[in-house]
Design a binder for these strands. Sequence first.
RNA 1: GGAUAGGUGGCCGAGUGGUUGAAGGCACCGGUCUCGAAAACCGGCGUACCGGCAACGGUACCGUGAGUUCGAAUCUCACCCUGUCCGCCA
Length: 425
Amino acid sequence: MHDIRLLRDQLDHLREGMRRRGKLAEFGPMLDRAESLEKERRAAITELEGQQARRNKLTQEVAQLRKAGSDATALIAEGRAIGDDIAALEQRKNDAEAAVQAMLYELPNITLPEVPEGDESHNTVVKSWGTPRADSTGIMPHWEKGAELGILDLQRGAKVTGSGFIVYRGAGAKLVRALMNMMLDAHTEEHGYEEAWVPLVVNRASMTGTGQLPKFEDDMYGIPEEELFLIPTAEVPVTNLYRDEILELGDLPKGLCAYSACFRREAGSAGKDTRGLLRVHQFDKVELVRYATPENSREQLELLTAHAESMLERLELPYRRLLLAAGDTGFSSAMTYDLEVFAPAVGKWLEVSSCSVFTDFQARRANIRYRPAPGEKPRFVHTLNGSALAFSRIIASLIEHHQQPDGSVRIPDALQPYFGRAVLR
RNA sequence: GGAUAGGUGGCCGAGUGGUUGAAGGCACCGGUCUCGAAAACCGGCGUACCGGCAACGGUACCGUGAGUUCGAAUCUCACCCUGUCCGCCA
């Protein structure tokens, strides 16, 4: 969320930010309305507070008269009139405020200057690692190979829950466990993250804090009776750990990592690119979250992204790093790198990580601050997060990229201690 | 789920329907004293918003929301959270 003050003194900045996302047509008129509503809000406040001051004075006079034993009925009548006036002004103020607030909640973050303008066609590959297998002949797609190896049971997942819910079996289940342990160990022991194990169900305030609500309610599974939601990513509970708190400068930068199952309803997703493990309603992920000062959040993004990339390198999967163009950058993000691995049988690059810096956009929503120095006023922190990594597509790529001519699947060296064997066959 | 107690400033804690932003204490900051420190003493010490170049003025905030009232931390209702006891449960 943006500072409401931007509507007063930096409207052009907001407008430019929307233009860079290619969303000026969508949000331009809203910005104009928000600006005038913000003026109306302040006018209402000024008037309201004047009346409140009158009332406060009046009630004192009533008290004096009462104490002196005099008659106060005239003043009480006057007070009643002021009270009606105040109620009306309060209504006016609240209406304007709610309207401005609603618009601010809908407005995406402004991307950093180095983020290319335009839609996803302007995404740029800024780094490549490893060599994708050029020749895919003889490589079975992961859903076939997975079924053949007995590690993937899509049919029964669909029976038990529905399509998009998968069952890993035998070595497949252990593979999930091995990936989880390998990643968490690396992040805690080598990259300095504190591990957290978090609720998979969160309340509305948490979903609003990280920016999923109010805009994307349709994309989530919820429990309406309890006003609770299934998390789409551990980013939500982990970032909200410090909601409404003030961190000490010495705590920053702070890193937390968490494994979680992730739930995505993605209402409009049925169709292509959904075979096998490519797009599912529930998947597993190890998430990294960092809290930083505004001064070094940008460099923290590089660090976080490097942590995610090191997972891919351990898994010996060729990947590329994309700098997303403004129009493809997520709602809350100011700058995002996507990491993609190649799945040769699918013939596509698969997004397995998205690393973002949110500047103060989430922190303002979630009210996460830090104190720059003892006695100084708190400022909003900058939050970052990234997947490191999302398992299902990693497993897809693993099955395809490491498939051997004899049909077996090689397990990368780094994973073997966790998985317990060198080959899947 | 049932019963019960409670939610007040950074922390502890008092609180009457009417100069209560809120006693007192701790912590913190400044000062006196001291060679220095401690103690003692004196003074200061919340946040947000509105108006103003500023000095400053004003408003709101005692878990959240609504209500009663000229006036609510104080009364009423609903909800949330915490503690305790009971029940249920992996």
